[in-house]
Nucleic acid binder design. Structure first.
Lengths: 133, 133
DNA sequence: GTCCTTGCAAAGCTTTTGCATCGCT
DNA sequence: AGCGATGCAAAAGCTTTGCAAGGAC
């Protein structure tokens, strides 16, 4: 029994071929849009409909398997939920996406929220950057 | 000559009625979507097309008059560029949006970017929160 | 066999665009 | 008057959904 198979069962989802393949694609590439995944699947000779990709991604998100990001491109990108939380830095010239994590910021965010009488459920932080000359 | 009129001229945009009214609506309400603005305009008896709202918002963004935010709702919201930068806290229960600013975080972000050989062009940070019981 | 899942096509939403008309300067 | 701005409607993404057929358990 494959690794993906187990992960899906654990989430209460039937281990179907589309779901296994989509999980594989996400594990081998980070930050893909639904369309990106669809194209990857075609490259792998998997005849999976785009609608299915969307449906599966929605289920994966609900199951906590993937995170959906809305960067500023008008389409969502997905990544497997990382073991350790991280934020993103997007290079506006190359489009590359870097990940980072900073405890000082995380701690400060929690303090700010609680000072206002809230607790943090989730957060998103994206730095749009360009290379230093 | 009105305040809006001056602001528009300064940005190199003709002071047309649609632009003046849209600016007014944005100054009286923060964080509105194109549709929200369109509806506000109708309330004010202004017959301005939705397409014009989109076009004007795009121009305002290019001119640095407004900022466009892509929170997680599938549609963009706009606000007048604030004098001092701030970030956002969105209550997932009520939908309310709060603003805050924190120098510790800002400084840290710049350090992180430069450590990776980048400089920050822009950033977005949104905390999704809920009220403490 | 049952119930969930898939594929396809159609529909939904937000946002953009073409084109003739209108309006600021 | 000239040239950009507007309105309307059509089109263009991205994403969701209805329905009949297919697949996992």
């Amino acid at each position: 029994m494959s690794q993906q198979n187990t992960e899906l069962k654990k989430a209460g989802l039937k281990a179907t071929l589309p779901r296994i393949k989509i999980l594989e694609v996400l594990e081998n590439n980070g930050h893909l849009s639904a369309e990106d995944i669809y194209k990857e699947l075609i490259k792998l000779d998997q005849d999976i409909g785009l609608a299915t990709v969307y449906r599966v991604l929605t289920q994966f998100e609900a199951a906590g398997i993937v995170i959906k990001h809305n960067f500023e491109e008008g389409r969502a990108v997905y990544e497997i939920v990382p073991d350790e939380h991280h934020d993103h830095m997007v290079c506006i010239d190359s489009g590359e996406i870097f990940e980072f994590h900073d405890d000082v910021i995380e701690k400060r965010q929690a303090e700010i929220a609680s000072k206002h009488g809230f607790e943090i459920v989730d957060h998103s932080m994206v730095l749009y950057v360009k290379k230093l000359k």
